[in-house]
Amino acid sequence: MTAIPFKTAPSLRSNRRWALIAAYACLGIFVVFFLFPPYYMLVTSLKTNAEIAELASNPWIVTDGVTLGHYEHLLTESSFPRFFLNTTIVTVIVVAITMVISVLAAYSLARLRFWGSGVLATGVFLTYLVPDTLLFIPLFKIVGWLGLLDTYWSLVLVYPTLTVPFCTWIMIGYFGSIPRELDEAALIDGANHMQMLLKVFIPVALPGLIAATIFAFTVAWANFLYPLAYIYSESEMVLTVGTVTTLIKGDVFHWGGLMAGALLAAAPPVILYAFLMDYYIAGLTSGATKG
């Protein structure tokens, strides 16, 4: 009778050990693979131009002394701060526009059953599937017609075409998972649709809202194609296009400056992710265990 637990317990334990070893091995490979580019960016950005150009030097470590020259040049003598500001303006406005439109759209598509709402919800998602490489030419016509070519306001107008459909889709899912009894309770409590959205739906679907915000932020911060197509003046450029156009002169690559610029440009999303991910996970797992 007692032989069974004695027999299974060690095998369960060794099973778990092997699972952990496999998990850590896979995670280790994953971490090395994904942390290599930022590490390489950091190392290169701290090297002098001479060390970068020296073919015989070790590319993985700084050997000739650390320099902050590239950062200094970038922040004081280039248009980098301007690009950063432009990107921030575009991103903040795009995220705000996206969240307002997609939250309202998702609420109405998920809850106000009206004629054609199901088809419309699918249609919203389908528009997201059209690649932006196909869209930028017709959008160029529209942007030009509105007189927004060569200003970052063109991006404010165009980015929501990428962000709104997907964010709406995410929010429809989150709103759809809220039990209908909750709206009914709010309805009886005396809430109108706006109050229901603001005081019940948004707080309850906060993890979804954060996921959508992260998505919109990433698109607006990191898109390359649209700014490349619509913006030509340095003063209007955003980080993605500005960094490469000003730091690559003909066939001369300012690797130190490029790497420093890429690292600085990547910092805000990383900080935002790190901050919101905690919140996001806390939201997802709340109530999963007994308090």
Partner: peptide
């Protein structure tokens, strides 16, 4: 519903989480 002066208790409680 809000003007009917009724209150309702639901099967799944329907508390605001």
């Amino acid at each position: 519903p809000k003007d009917r002066n009724i209150a309702m208790v639901f099967q799944n409680y329907a508390l605001y989480p």
